[in-house]
Amino acid sequence: MRLFGHRVPLTALIGLAIIAINVVAAVGAPLIAPYDQAAVLGDAWADPTPQYVLGLDDLGRDLFSRLIYGARMSIGLAFVVTCLSFAIGIVTGFAGAVLRGWVDMLLSRIVDLLLSMPTLIFAFIVLSVLGTALPVLIVTIAILDSTKVFRLARALAMNIAALEYVEVARVRGEGLWWVIRREIFPNAVAPLVAEFGLRFSFAFLFIAALSFLGLGVQPPAADWGSMVRDYRDMINLDAMAPLYPAGAIAILTIGVNFVVDWMLAVHSRGHGEGA
């Protein structure tokens, strides 16, 4: 199969399929899920039946339906965080690379500072004071994550700006905005798209981890991470319950990584020596 003129390997196809299924589940949760996520339908931990394919959970709610609604929360949150982090990272990164001087210095030092600690630890510190309301969670993770986008966007813009075709445009007398929009940005898109995938899977795993630790999404709302936390004691009774949401997290991440891997390979082939 080919896509945008590139051969798509099997792993990337699987990845694309996984992403598509997850997105459909997230968007159409109320239509697809057989039951409401909050509806109590029977005894706690009832075994799977054809009616309740994965059984019921600790409060007697349908596990499968909750899994589908969980997709909505997990994917939606991660998507919003990634978009925000990209908006911040690209604007600041390009600004640093193009404006240079004190703007670049200041931005780079701030980013160095934010990266002087593991992201999780930093998040802990902020959450310990501000609490775990969703907006706090989103903004905190987005800002922490935007440091990585900043570095990539800045490096890309710097590398491209040093190329002669950009020099040609500058010597022609083109304005700064035109140079960024027409000469630099189009050549930075491919690596940035791949980075979006990477950042998404990072934000997704990060939010899930926080939720699993009880510091992310708070009840009654639930994402996959908090579901793992809610069901974790059942593992000692040999139940599958915590493995479903945890598996869902893993599968989506694998899918995204498959696609990112392929995009990076295509990108490096397009610019390499063709070896």
Binding site: T11, S201, L205, A208, A209, F212, V228, R232, I235, N236, D238, P242, L243, A246, G247, I249, A250, T253, I254, V256, N257, F258, D261
Partner: peptide, 18 residues
């Protein structure tokens, strides 16, 4: 390794426990 890189710690942990 491409698979395991994507797997969160708690999934590995709970599978091992189970």
């Amino acid at each position: 390794t491409l698979l395991t890189i994507s797997v969160p710690e708690y999934l590995v942990g709970y599978i091992l426990i189970k």
